[in-house]
Computed example of a mutant assay.
Amino acid sequence: MKGKTKILIIVVTVIITLLVVARLFVSVSSQGPKGGKNFGQIKNFVNVTVVGTKVKRGNIQKYITLSGDIRGISEAQVFADVPGKIAKVSVIEGQYVTKDQPLMYVDRSLVGYQYNLSPVRSPISGRVGSISVSEGQSISQSTPLALVVDDRIVEVQLLLPESYYTKIKKGSVAIVEVPSLNNEKIQGYVYSSDIVIDRGTRTLKVRVRVNNPNGKLISGMYVDVKIPIETALNTTYVPATSIREVENKTFVYVLSETNVNNEKLYNVSLRSVSTGVSDGDNISVSGVKEGEIVVSLGAEYLKDGIVVRAILQ
């Protein structure tokens, strides 16, 4: 019996608390700004607060993001001229070497025959990317011994969808983002693109090059590359969240400051606009002027002709 009484007391307490909170909410909502003005005295006032952002002017670029692997613009597998055993390895991975510098030596001696050690030379200048053999190992002329990479300039080969073929321009700036370097962004450029489309994948190869003077980008490293495909120059733009669509027409809510009973409030007007290039965060528009204020957050609560509070960014 005591248990039932305790439960009943808890239920009654919760109901009373909810009634008090509801009463307070109704009381606050029925007041105007600052809680001291009568809501009914402010014509068309709606008790909501929106976020307003000024219309800006600048350049907006739309990008396509593709992924690929870093490689040196010049990479060379190293092979021996003669079969035998690796007698000596003279370099280490990561070491810079010049063209024709000996990397290792091969002993091609046979039973009853002695030969001088045969040097294995680097075919290009660059860094030793990898060494695939060790001293004492038997090799043939087809055994890969090492990889030398000229990585002062590196390249990313990307597969571009056919639909973007006409939008990629040689020399365009490309942003290379490297996940393994804490998403560091490095500027590169579009070096070239194929003029043949792969019929199986409906893509073509695009090559982006990046200067790599400190060698932080290494062959095989995975990267994401952003390439501009559309640009709007010196355009007015607004946050993409400002755009509203009604019956296939595009609008924004424009705020104009007004003073009501010594309160700074904002009139809301619905404005038709035309949209253009979007970078995902912002979008170019015509129909508004630089410096005007548009609603970037909270527009779903609005309609033309009302008065609201606003926080300006």
Score class of each variant (00 low, 15 high):
residue 1 M to C: 05
residue 10 I to C: 01
residue 19 L to P: 02
residue 20 V to E: 02
residue 40 G to R: 10
residue 46 V to K: 15
residue 53 T to H: 11
residue 53 T to C: 04
residue 57 R to S: 15
residue 65 T to N: 10
residue 66 L to H: 08
residue 68 G to A: 07
residue 69 D to S: 12
residue 69 D to W: 04
residue 71 R to N: 12
residue 72 G to Q: 09
residue 76 A to S: 15
residue 82 V to S: 12
residue 84 G to R: 14
residue 91 V to H: 13
residue 94 G to R: 12
residue 98 T to F: 13
residue 103 L to N: 11
residue 105 Y to S: 07
residue 105 Y to G: 00
residue 115 Y to V: 04
residue 118 S to K: 06
residue 122 S to Q: 06
residue 129 G to T: 07
residue 129 G to S: 10
residue 133 V to Y: 06
residue 139 I to L: 10
residue 140 S to D: 04
residue 140 S to G: 10
residue 142 S to A: 05
residue 146 A to F: 07
residue 147 L to M: 10
residue 153 I to N: 01
residue 158 L to P: 12
residue 159 L to D: 01
residue 159 L to Q: 05
residue 167 K to C: 00
residue 171 G to T: 08
residue 172 S to T: 13
residue 174 A to T: 03
residue 187 Q to C: 00
residue 192 S to D: 14
residue 201 T to C: 11
residue 203 T to K: 11
residue 210 V to W: 09
residue 211 N to Y: 06
residue 212 N to K: 05
residue 215 G to Q: 04
residue 224 D to R: 15
residue 236 T to P: 05
residue 237 Y to V: 06
residue 241 T to V: 06
residue 254 V to T: 11
residue 258 T to V: 15
residue 258 T to G: 01
residue 262 N to M: 10
residue 263 E to N: 13
residue 264 K to S: 03
residue 268 V to G: 01
residue 269 S to G: 04
residue 275 T to G: 02
residue 276 G to I: 00
residue 279 D to W: 02
residue 281 D to S: 14
residue 282 N to H: 09
residue 283 I to F: 07
residue 283 I to E: 06
residue 284 S to T: 08
residue 285 V to C: 03
residue 287 G to D: 03
residue 288 V to H: 03
residue 294 V to Y: 02
residue 299 A to V: 01
residue 300 E to M: 08
residue 303 K to Q: 14
residue 312 L to V: 11
